[in-house]
């Protein structure tokens, strides 16, 4: 598939000496008394796609959700260690979670458009953050976001129809358009294709590869093929611990760790 080759042959764009966009330092997450994540050290490079893989319950989604503090919404959830965004500690009391989430956007596993019009869906973020100065500005943001999410041609004539009336794949692209409309710096994707058919999945994967030019992307996926196709860096989690991380081709062709090898060859998980 051209898609696959395009992704895997593309050299990582990261400037070798650029500081990481986000960095986790001994990150641990507790749900009540139970620790779900242990001492994760992970660098997220700018303008790269970092994929988090591992069996169910390994803590990869937990780690992803701690990157924009979505874990805060869960009662009894506690994060220890340090996560930085451009060297700022995002758990510092001076950080406003609203601003953080405007800078670190998120796309969820199940497409979750608002039960409002397609236009309203995309325009909501820019509206609440005051990104658009006037209606023309807002129109421009909505149109360009839909275009970049590859949805424009399919919805340009029905922007006022409900977003919930779209197909699953279209809904997920609408959610991506909604996420990028607030112009985040980092985009978190939590298994964005798990509810989609292979064709819609291929479209989204292509989209992720294009979005990499402007956004730093972290994606959680259950599909190792997908991780291999879209990401430049891969991190393997198991039982709440980060087992191995590195360049995607290294992880998949030459894993250093026995557990990683077992997982990618299908022996555990």
């Amino acid at each position: 598939m051209s898609l696959e080759s395009a992704a895997t042959t593309a050299a990582p764009v990261a400037r070798p000496n650029a500081p990481p966009k986000m960095q986790g330092d001994k990150v641990g997450v507790f749900y009540g008394e139970k620790q779900a994540l242990f001492d994760v050290d992970l660098k997220i490079e700018q303008f790269n796609v970092t994929s988090l893989i591992g069996p169910s319950g390994c803590g990869k989604s937990t780690f992803l959700r701690s990157l924009n503090r979505m874990n805060d919404t869960i009662d009894g959830c506690r994060v220890v260690g340090k996560i930085t965004l451009d060297k700022d500690d995002i758990y510092d009391p001076s950080i406003d979670v609203v601003e953080l989430r405007a800078r670190v956007g998120m796309v969820f596993q199940k497409p979750n458009p608002f039960p409002k019009s397609i236009y309203e869906n995309v325009a909501y973020g820019p509206k609440i953050h005051g990104i658009a100065r006037n209606k023309a500005d807002l129109d421009e943001i909505v149109h360009s976001s839909l275009r970049r999410a590859g949805l424009w041609n399919e919805v340009k004539d029905r922007l006022n129809e409900p977003g919930t009336g779209l197909s699953g794949g279209q809904q997920q692209r609408l959610c991506i358009a909604r996420a990028i409309a607030t112009k985040p710096e980092v985009l978190l994707m939590d298994e964005p294709c798990s509810a989609l058919d292979p064709i819609a999945t291929a479209v989204i994967e292509e989209l992720i590869d294009e979005l990499r030019e402007n956004f730093t992307i972290v994606i959680v996926t259950h599909s190792m093929q997908q991780a291999a196709r879209v990401s430049q860096k891969t991190a393997f989690f198991h039982l709440g611990k980060l087992i191995e991380e590195g360049k995607t081709e290294d992880i998949f062709t030459n894993p250093r760790n026995k557990q990683t090898q077992d997982y990618i060859t299908g022996r555990i998980g």
């Binding site: 609203v98 989430r101 609440i128």
Partner: peptide
């Protein structure tokens, strides 16, 4: 009201009050 609507609103940086009054309450 499905929790996914709340996540969606919070995920793009809505405050809790915006989440409630713009999305949850209408539903």
């Amino acid at each position: 009201v499905p929790p996914s609507i709340r996540s969606a609103a919070l995920g793009i940086g809505a405050s809790r009050m915006q989440m409630v009054f713009d999305h949850v309450l209408p539903l």
